[in-house]
Nucleic acid binder design. Structure first.
Length: 782
DNA sequence: CAGTGAGCGAGCTTCCGCTTGACTT
């Protein structure tokens, strides 16, 4: 008999809480949601008030029957699921699915796992908030309607098995639009001017300071003119400004900021961050890792204060309460922090766990530390022959504060880091000597492609997705073939560097740099472009970046009891469903077809489009179906949106006939393993250094003969009794084979002297030793 | 491994947000 049964969502949470509550309480967990909409007929009756039909998924059946038994035995059931929309719904589902009578139920909530918080929650039970549950059900139903009506449209109009949804389709849109932006970007070049100046105050050694010109030149000519003007000019300190700056620590981690920092500082993919954080959480080292809150418990604030004063002194402590910025935060948990700040290092952790723990520890503690105070000096350097000025900056840390512990990293596209050195003491009017001035050609850059973490950040800003779904979204869009994470090589590009030296000479140098190389970024696939264009065209409101925010507002109104759930769903579904029906009837099949131009040989049209087995280039006549179209698959790395006419025409240059040998054609073509020559139904790979488009007849014949020679050298002995049985020379020395089984040759036996009978015998013995070779394929393929 | 691409039709795919394990070539 159980007196008090407490149900929470997470088993790790359950064991912690059990310790706080004492003997009269048994604490168990639901492992998240226990029911979901049925798959059949969408699980929603759209005709009659959007009535959902729920069922317990197969992998939850056991858990639910366990919970049912416990609930029946208990005097009181405390539903202690999270204090947010989903948590409220889980409590309601528990009540319904476990058939718990209302008078046995007490609903309690807390958003930090500390003893006072739990005890207070038990003192203040309430009942289930039906409005909040309604809001969750509306969210769930709407997502199902969108996903299960939109996806089949894609199956029909684009390709089977594709998917669309409120969250994933917007994530894909972000990536596609960024890629288009990059494609359409027109680079501009300009010249950056910087100078090195010598400062001398007589007594000490000369000091060199670096300063940048306040003007960028669009033309090489004006850059050179400026350098010329600097020859023999006087340079002096025109103005000197000192300003005190304040730097404030970042708030403690939420799921999204943890994912971003772990990506920048530790190079973790978001999935790894979550896996490692889960380990730390289950071992009791950190608080819950799926949270949108920056709040710290009173216990955490007090222990942080103690830790900081003891280790750095009280001047380093600054009490701070952070407010969540993101609009849709539900704040059911604390920020991510170490459970105990005095656990600086934990010896039992793996390297990854230790690195992530260290990051969490520092960030949480630094958030309670003082601001850093920095003195920033800006020096304007006048040029006697020009109105432009050089500007040098220097920084001195007056008080380090939180910087003692933690510096937040920045993304590469958030602007160049200023190199602020320490400046020597300077006075207004002081002369400076020019050591060198350089004008370097630079190019403007488009926005950077999304990394996983940058996409999470963007989604969070738009209020799309939740802490528990950020990592799964990244996997989903990759699993569905919309996005690939990969490395792409850049191109080399020349730039000019003009240098004026202290001897008064200007030299010009041409240098090269690599541009456009990208690593670990998210790239859209061909199908992503096609699906996105299709969805944006026919379902602009669903694909609107503000769609989720609009829905969230309505869900809030439902939670407040201001609007009715059925009304809200009806208002959304009626026009949406109408558009789905019309799109199915009227829209053209989307192939992402692009016209590239004319084939000079035939005068026919050349297009590139998506076909059944992938992207193809096609030469055809749109007016005359009698002419059979020619098609060729795109090669790896080629994409519909970037393929040029020349590249498309190259695809049709193979297969070609390179000549004749022994009365048969030499066919040159490209296969899965690269280019090959086919002759007498045998295949000969063409090495990398020969271009298959220009390989000659004699080169083909050489290839064939050298392969035949190699095979002859391999063949030690064959038998007329059975031509499949051979003695061959392999990588590890001579062996016997019958095409299926390979056998070793006993020591001391001369390979040339093996008889047919001996060969058969060795093969039989070898077959017994490893009877399952090639048949042992057990495990299922994912 | 060396190429496919017509058309028919059965039966399948698919959403988001809560939670953890169970799996190895």
């Amino acid at each position: 008999m159980i007196k008090n049964l407490v149900i929470v969502e997470s088993p790790a949470k359950a064991s912690t809480i059990e310790k706080f509550l004492g003997k009269d309480f048994t604490v168990t967990s639901s492992y998240g949601h226990i029911r979901d909409l049925a798959k059949k007929d969408m699980g929603i009756d759209t005709e009659k008030g959007f009535i959902p039909s729920y069922e317990v998924p197969a992998d939850k059946k056991k858990k639910v029957s366990e919970l049912k038994k416990m609930a029946a035995e208990a005097e009181t059931v405390w539903l202690a699921t999270d204090e947010d929309r989903e948590g409220e719904a889980i409590s309601w589902h528990l009540k319904e699915a476990l058939h718990i009578p209302s008078n046995k139920i007490k609903r309690i909530v807390f958003h930090e796992i500390t003893k006072p918080a739990i005890l207070e929650a038990v003192q203040n039970p309430r009942s289930i908030d039906d409005n909040l549950v309604d809001a969750q059900q509306s969210r769930r139903i709407l997502d199902r309607l969108v996903g299960f009506e939109l996806s089949p449209v894609l199956w029909k109009k684009v390709r089977p098995s594709l998917s669309a949804g409120r969250v994933q389709s917007v994530a894909v849109r972000l990536i596609v639009e960024r890629e288009k932006e990059i494609q359409d970007f027109v680079t501009r070049d300009y010249f950056n001017v910087s100078g090195l100046f010598r400062v001398s105050d007589g007594s000490r050694k000369d000091v060199i300071i670096k300063a940048d010109l306040d003007k960028k030149f669009d033309e090489e000519e004006s850059a050179i003119n400026f350098l010329r003007a600097c020859i023999g000019a006087n340079f002096s300190v025109e103005d000197l400004e000192k300003k005190e700056l304040k730097k404030t620590p970042a708030p403690p981690f939420t799921t999204s900021t943890l994912q971003q920092e772990a990506a920048r500082k530790l190079r973790f993919p978001v999935s790894k961050t979550m896996r490692v954080a889960q380990n730390l959480y289950e071992a009791g080292h950190i608080t819950y890792m799926r949270t949108d809150s920056v709040n710290l418990s009173d216990f955490a604030l007090a222990t942080a204060r103690e830790m900081i004063t003891d280790n750095f002194g009280s001047e380093y402590h600054h009490f701070r309460k952070y407010k969540t910025k993101s609009v849709n935060a539900q704040e059911a948990h604390e920020a991510i922090r170490p459970t105990y700040f005095n656990n600086r290092k934990i010896s039992t952790l793996t390297r990854d766990e230790a690195a992530l723990y260290d990051l969490i520890w520092k960030r949480a503690l630094a958030s309670q530390m003082s601001d850093a105070r920095i003195e920033k000096t800006t020096v304007d350097i006048a040029v006697s022959t020009s109105p432009h000025k050089f500007i040098a900056t220097g920084e001195v840390i007056l008080f380090d504060g939180f910087l003692k512990l933690y510096i937040e990293s920045r993304d590469e596209d958030e602007g160049d880091e200023e190199d602020s050195a320490i400046l020597p003491p300077l006075k207004t009017g002081q002369p400076l000597w020019m050591k060198e001035i350089t004008a370097t050609q630079r190019y403007t850059r488009p926005s950077a492609r999304y990394t996983e973490a940058a996409l999470v950040k963007k989604l969070e800003e738009l209020g799309i997705g939740r802490p528990s779904t950020y990592a799964p979204i990244i996997s989903t869009i990759q699993d569905r073939g919309y996005v690939v994470k990969e490395e792409r090589e850049g191109k080399s590009r020349n730039y000019m560097k003009l240098t004026l030296s202290d001897s008064g000479k200007i030299s010009t140098e041409e240098k090269t740099e690599i541009t456009g190389a990208d690593k670990g970024k998210l790239f859209p696939t061909d199908i992503a472009f096609i699906v996105n264009d299709f969805l944006v065209k026919y379902f602009p409101n669903i694909l609107d970046f503000k769609f989720t925010a609009k829905i969230e507002k309505q869900l809030d109104d439902i939670a407040k009891g201001d609007i009715d759930r059925v009304e809200m769903l009806k208002k959304f579904y009626q026009p949406f469903h109408k558009t789905v029906r019309e799109t199915l009837e009227t829209s053209e099949r989307a192939t992402g077809s692009r016209e590239l131009g004319k084939d000079p040989a035939s005068g026919l049209d050349v297009i590139v489009r998506m076909a059944k087995y992938g992207a193809v280039a096609q030469i055809y006549s749109p007016d005359n179906p009698e002419i059979k179209p020619r098609m060729a698959s795109l090669k790896k790395g080629q994409r519909i949106d970037t393929l040029s006419l020349e590249e498309a025409l190259d695809l049709f240059r193979l297969p070609r006939i390179a000549g004749e040998y022994e009365g048969e054609e030499l066919v040159v073509a490209e296969g899965r393993f690269g280019p090959y020559v086919k002759h007498q139904s045998k295949f000969y790979s063409i090495p990398r250094d020969i271009d298959p488009l220009s390989i000659t007849e004699s080169e083909c014949i050489d290839l064939i003969n050298s392969k035949k020679d190699a095979e002859a050298a391999r063949n030690i002995k064959s038998f007329t009794e059975d031509p499949s049985v051979k003695v061959l020379n392999g990588r590890f020395g001579p062996y016997i084979t019958n095409g299926k089984v390979n056998a070793k040759i006993p020591k001391g036996k001369e390979p040339r002297e093996i008889t047919f009978a001996e060969a058969l015998q060795y093969i039989e013995e070898a077959a017994k030793k490893e009877p399952v070779k090639g048949r042992g394929g057990r495990g299922k393929k994912k």
